[in-house]
């Protein structure tokens, strides 16, 4: 009998103690847990401050990816309507977020600092296809602070002809 009473008292004691401790449960989705600066969420393709895409379609992110989640197909820029500085741009860009293990290797591999993993982690969807993100979904909305490195990627003026003597 005494045993039982001490057990109840102990239990109630725990309840009382916890009641006055600070709350840890968050009212998700209204309230979100702060994430680390280096959190690795959904991918984003940044754009230069002048609005050109930073991706040059080099495929280095694709080859770095241990999960084979990325597919890049490059193409030649239209000099009258360039998508990126230089000759080449990422014509097709896909990330299969179901394959991705969010290791961040792709970000590390990117030579133009275009690709980075954002804070966004709410990546649920109703179909598998919907989780293969296309370039339009991955492109950043707003320009970044990066400037075009014109010495490496001079503006593409199209094919040149050989100069005659």
């Amino acid at each position: 009998m005494a045993n039982m009473l001490t057990a109840i008292a102990k239990g109630l004691g725990t309840t009382l103690r916890v009641m006055f401790k600070p709350k840890v449960t968050l009212e998700y989705p209204e309230v979100k847990k702060p994430r680390s600066q280096r959190f690795r969420g959904r991918h984003e393709l940044r754009i230069y401050e002048n609005g050109l895409e930073m991706c040059v379609g080099c495929e280095l992110c694709q080859v770095a990816c241990p999960a084979h989640a990325i597919t890049v197909i490059a193409a030649e820029n239209d000099p009258n309507n360039p998508r990126s500085p230089g000759e080449r741009y990422g014509y097709k860009y896909q990330v299969d977020l179901l394959r991705c293990i969010f290791c961040g290797y792709c970000e590390e591999a990117c030579p133009t600092e275009c690709l980075h993993l954002t804070q966004e982690f709410e990546l649920a969807a109703f179909s598998r296809e919907a989780l293969v993100y296309q370039k339009e979904q991955l492109l950043a909305r707003a320009p970044s602070h990066f400037k075009v490195p014109e010495n490496v990627y001079p503006p593409y003026t199209g094919r040149k002809v050989l100069v005659a003597e």
């Binding site: 001079p154 593409y156 100069v163």
Partner: peptide
Amino acid sequence: KEHKPKAVD
């Protein structure tokens, strides 16, 4: 760097 023509046919 010295610059020269690129993408010449």
